[in-house]
Amino acid sequence: MEHPILFISIILEKLGLPIPHGPVGNTFLEKLCEPYMTYTWFVMIFLVVVGKLTLSNVEMIPGKGQNFWELVIGGMNDFFNDNMGKELTDKLFPMIATFALYIAVANLIGLIPGFMSPTSSINTTLALTVIVWVTHHIIGFRAHGVGYIKHFLGPIPILIPLMFPIELISNIARLLSLSIRLFGNIMAKETLLGILFMLAGAYFAPLPIMLLGVLVSVVQAMVFVLLTVVYFGQANEHAH
């Protein structure tokens, strides 16, 4: 496939760092210089710098930047409160809000030529998903102790041999579906945009896909966060 022009990779190459020519590097330094890693750092730096610039002096009467963040963070806080309760929200808000902002920015950044979405690599999405999956089991064990296993046994005692494998499979399927959904949607968007740029970029052919790309990026970020919140809420509540 045509290699896309990624400006961070070009800068790093000029600096003399090894850029892997396949999807995965061989040495440790090559692994660190893979495009999805460098763009992950780019998104992290972007979020930190923007947060620092807009929130350096928090005031009673909010300015433009502070107003925006109050809207975003307040909206997310209400949404989490509705779906998983106040106690869990207070404990886990920083983690899920970070995921939301990171995934949204990482998805949208791929729409700009010269950038790529870090979430279009399965490594990134699988890492996020494993964190969420492990955390929701930890929440379950902390809330119910050994009784957490009741979540997997279904409502009727006689049906336990039938329900236990089903619940186990559908729980492991969360790991698969959560990571592959985000990865697949964003990778499809990136690949389609790349191909359309290559074929008819001069005639603005990628524009309609870019419009859809904005919708897909926002919806996928929202789906990931919604499912995270729902899983945390389900692990915390009592078994049916």
């Binding site: 499979i169 559908s170 492991i172 399927a173 969360r174 698969l176 579906s177 592959i180 959904r181 697949g184 919708l215 926002v218 919806v219 929202m222 789906v223 919604l226 499912l227």
Partner: peptide, 20 residues
């Protein structure tokens, strides 16, 4: 966006369960 968020992942979830 709300509807897509709530129900857009049905297909993936179903397929993932079968594959697992």
């Amino acid at each position: 966006v709300n509807l897509l968020g709530n129900y857009g992942h049905i297909g993936f979830t179903f397929v993932a369960a079968i594959f697992v």
